[in-house]
Design a protein around this nucleic acid. Structure first.
Lengths: 120, 120
DNA sequence: TATTTCACTTTCCTTTGGGAAAGTAGTATA
DNA sequence: TATACTACTTTCCCAAAGGAAAGTGAAATA
């Protein structure tokens, strides 16, 4: 029997959730994964597909995603070299997270407008 | 027919994902939801159940979660007033997100140690 | 009376994230 | 020769996040 409560068992959940958040939280990482996943493989294409992202931030986030083995940067061609970004297969494991966030986001938008009656 | 590619369709996914991230991203929000969800309802209990959180940060995050209608702060009792934090039912909708993040985090830890052979 | 507990607040400081704008090296096009 | 495109980098700046430590006021306990 424990002294008081078992409430600290939540560490079993909190720890892995924080591991996941360390990798994918932030404003841009998942949008970039989504964009590359849908077929945008050039720097400029990715930039244009994500409203508001600047080249500096995109470059930095791409480097971090590469370090986390979620995507791959490859140089192809000879004289006019192209740089292609593609998802590593490991990025597929993020699919459940992306869909649960998307579903929640879609529902949340209606929740907010229904509850608050705001016109945005 | 579109001019070139349909890759920008990813906005249909990116937008709601960003709506969700605006609410729950950051280091502390989900850990707090998890802790309160498991039964920690007092400020000090929550603080002690989440390693590393400071009272200043906890107070701020609790206020934000209350504003987002994810949890409720209630004052109970008369002379020694107690303050209780409980989840709103709307917080239950976060369950799929929490579990997908937890599963990914658990798997990611083995992925990292297998691939990199680090001893942390 | 002194100490402890609860639920924070306050101050100070450092780090991180990120926007704006310009620059750049190489190649291609007019 | 001049302009444009690609994939960035560089500089400057600002705001938000967040850590450390101390304080606070009311009530309970010793």
């Amino acid at each position: 029997m424990a002294k008081k409560k078992e409430h600290c068992d939540c560490l079993n959940t909190i720890k892995p959730v924080r591991d996941a958040l360390d990798v994918i939280s932030g404003k841009w990482k998942l949008p970039i994964i989504i964009s590359v996943g849908v077929g945008n493989d050039r720097f400029t294409d990715i930039q244009q597909s994500i409203p508001g992202i600047t080249p500096k931030v995109l470059a930095k986030e791409l480097r971090e995603l590469e370090q986390h083995r979620l995507l791959k940067r490859s140089v192809v061609g000879d004289y006019p070299v192209k740089i292609l970004y593609t998802l590593e297969s490991y990025a597929d494991t993020l699919t459940p997270i992306i869909y649960s966030l998307k579903d929640w986001g879609v529902n949340h938008r209606t929740f907010v407008t229904d509850k608050c009656g705001l016109n945005s």
